[in-house]
Each structure stands twice: as structure tokens, then as C-alpha cells.
Amino acid sequence: MKSVVTTVVTAADAAGRFPSQNDLEAVQGNIQRAAARLEAAEKLAAGLDALTKEAGDACFNKYAYLKQPGEAGDSQVKIDKCYRDLGHYMRLINYCLVVGGTGPLDEWGIAGAREVYRSLSLPTGPYVEALTYTRDRACAPRDMSPQALNEFKSYLDYLINALS
């Protein structure tokens, strides 16, 4: 799992040297920013279910045709799966906030997503709409502190770009 610490350790190990002052400074920089990340992770974990529902509702409101016969959300089972996937994405963003890098999203969310969605002929536009809604709706200081919100939104943007 890629994170600041594992990157530093991998580089030091490849060179066969002990962690240098540079390495320790890099980890220190990561630690200084960690408080905001962990706050965002905590708030996201607490509001995960409500947030997922809001995001899913937003996407079905905008793309109401998805519930028509033959479309991606023409049965309750499929609709539930859409909400479930959004929940997974939010959970992965929670992981990214904890780790402090895009590793979890890359490895468990984005890698292969394009191929999967294509083979199931699922549109990614609605996911983008749901995530964009979440991004634009989140606000500081109601949901979390400004710095924490900044971290949260940067991962949402990363995911939106990957699905666009």
C-alpha cells in the first residue's frame, strides 16, 4: 500500500541505507498534515450512510431515465447496487484520507473499473454526477473544518477525474 512512509522506506531499502534526515523530514511533513486528514476521515465515517444516500438520490434525480425499463437502474436490485457502489467509493476515500495518498482508490477502486463498467454496460456519468453533488454540497465549517474539507474534496476530485 503506497503511502508517504512506505515510499520513503522503499527508497531507503533500494539504496540499502538507514532512514536519512531527508526521509525523516518527509515523514514529519506528512504527520503535520495528518490531523486534518484524520478529522475528515472521522467525519466521513460517521456520515457515510447519509452521504451515500444523498449522493445516490442526486444522481437518480438528475438522470431519472435510469429507472426506465432497459436502463441501468430498472429494478430495485440494480438501484441498490448503485448505492452500494457509491458507498464503496466513499469508503475508499475514507481509506485514502487515513493513508494520506490515493493508494486505496487506485488499487481497489479505479484499477479495472473502466473495463468492468464497459462489460456491464454501465454509464459512469451518473457516478460523476453523484460525486460532484457530494463535492459541491460539502461545506465548511458545517461538515468539517476547512482544511479537512480541502483534503476530502481533493480525493473526490481525483475520483471524478478518473471516472470522467
Binding site: 500500500m1 512506505t6 465515517a45 475514507n94
Partner: peptide, 21 residues
């Protein structure tokens, strides 16, 4: 390779739960 952060992520993922509390 894991660190303290990714360790908690991997164990939370095994339970499909977000990292919290």
C-alpha cells in the same frame, strides 16, 4: 509493505467498514 495507517485500512477493508472511532 504496510505502515500504521495502511494497516488499519487493510483490516477495515476486510470488514467492508470505514476507518473510524
Amino acid at each position: 509493505m504496510l505502515d500504521a495507517f495502511s494497516r488499519s485500512v487493510v483490516s477495515a477493508d476486510a470488514k467492508t467498514a470505514p476507518v473510524g472511532g
